[in-house]
Computed example of a mutant assay.
Amino acid sequence: MSRIAFTPTRVAVLGAAVLLTAGAAGVAVASGEDVTHPGKRIGTQDAAHPAPAAKDAAAAKAKPREAAALTGSAKLFRKTTEDITFTFDAHLAARHNADPSKATGTFKFVHLEKPGGKGGWATGRIDCLLTGGKVASATGIITKTNIKEMNGSRVGFSVHDQGKKDRLGYSWAAVGGPDGTKKLTKCNSAAPFEQVKKGTGDFHVQPWKLPYPDPR
C-alpha cells in the first residue's frame, strides 16, 4: 500500500494554506458575516439544511465498522544477523461479521540471512481472519514466492497486539519452515511466541464482535 510522501516544500505550502484558511475564518467571526454567503449573518443556518460539517459527521457515524482487521508491518527479534519481516493488510467487512472465511487482504513475509542478503520471500491473499481482543489468527494462500514448493500452499499467522511490544506466530513453527501443505485449516496457526524487534514496526488488531445468537 503506497503512501504520499510530503516533501518539506509541500508541507510548507500546506501549512500556509491552513493558516490562510484560519485567517479568513477569523475575519468572518469578527464581522459576524458568513464568508461563504456574503451578507448572511452567522447563526442563521436553516435547520432543515444542516451545515456540510454536520452532514459529514453524521455520514461517518452511520458508516458500518468493519468486523475485524489485522494490519501493520514489523521485523522479528533475532540475536543473529537474520532479517525477518512480516506484513499484513487483512480485513473482514461488516457485512461478513458472521463468516471469518470471507476475509480479504494480503500478507507478505521475507526471511534473509542478513539485511540485503540471500533468503526466501512470499506474498499471498488472506482467506480467513479471526480476532479476539488484541489477538488475531489468520490464514492465506501463497500466490508468489521464490521457493517453488511453497507456491499455492496455505499458511497461518497469529499476532498479539501489545502496543509496539507485539508477538507473532506462524503455522510452520513446529516443522522449521512452510512445508507446502494445502490442507491447513482456515484461521489456524501457532501461538504468537515470537517477539517483534523494537523500533522496526507495529501490528494493529481490531477486535471481532462475536455474533452470539439471541436467546429464545
Score class of each variant (00 low, 15 high):
I4N: 10
F6H: 13
T7I: 06
T9M: 07
A12I: 04
V13C: 07
L14T: 14
A17L: 13
A22H: 08
A22I: 08
G23M: 12
G23K: 12
G26K: 06
G26Y: 07
A30M: 08
A30L: 11
D34I: 04
T36C: 02
T36R: 05
H37A: 13
H37G: 01
P38M: 08
G39F: 02
G39M: 05
Q45I: 12
Q45E: 12
Q45T: 15
A47M: 08
A47E: 12
A48K: 12
P50H: 01
P50C: 05
A51S: 10
P52S: 01
A53C: 05
A54W: 02
A57R: 13
A57G: 02
A60H: 06
A62Q: 10
E66C: 04
E66A: 12
A67Y: 06
A68I: 11
T71L: 08
G72F: 00
L76E: 01
F77A: 14
R78I: 00
R78N: 13
K79C: 05
T80N: 13
T81V: 04
T81I: 02
E82N: 12
T85G: 01
F86S: 03
F88R: 01
F88H: 08
D89V: 05
H91L: 14
A93K: 11
H96L: 01
N97P: 03
N97V: 14
N97G: 09
A98M: 06
S101H: 10
K102D: 10
K102F: 06
T104A: 10
G105A: 08
G105P: 00
T106H: 11
F107T: 04
V110F: 01
V110M: 08
P115R: 10
G117M: 09
G119I: 09
W121V: 05
W121T: 05
G124V: 02
R125V: 15
L129Y: 03
L129Q: 07
L129R: 03
L129T: 03
G132M: 07
V135W: 00
V135T: 15
A136L: 06
A136D: 05
S137K: 06
S137V: 12
T139Q: 06
I141H: 07
I141L: 10
I142N: 00
I142H: 01
I142A: 02
K144E: 14
K144L: 11
I147Q: 15
K148E: 15
K148M: 11
E149Y: 05
E149Q: 11
E149L: 09
N151G: 11
G152R: 07
G152K: 06
R154C: 03
G156D: 04
S158E: 01
H160A: 15
D161R: 02
K164Y: 02
K164L: 02
K165M: 03
K165S: 06
D166H: 00
R167C: 02
L168C: 01
A173L: 13
V175D: 09
G176H: 05
G177K: 14
D179L: 08
G180W: 04
G180M: 08
K183Q: 13
T185F: 09
T185Y: 07
K186M: 09
K186W: 00
S189A: 15
A190C: 04
A190T: 05
A190S: 15
K197R: 14
K198N: 09
K198R: 12
K198L: 08
K198W: 02
T200K: 00
G201K: 00
G201S: 03
K209H: 10
Y212R: 08
P215N: 10
R216T: 06
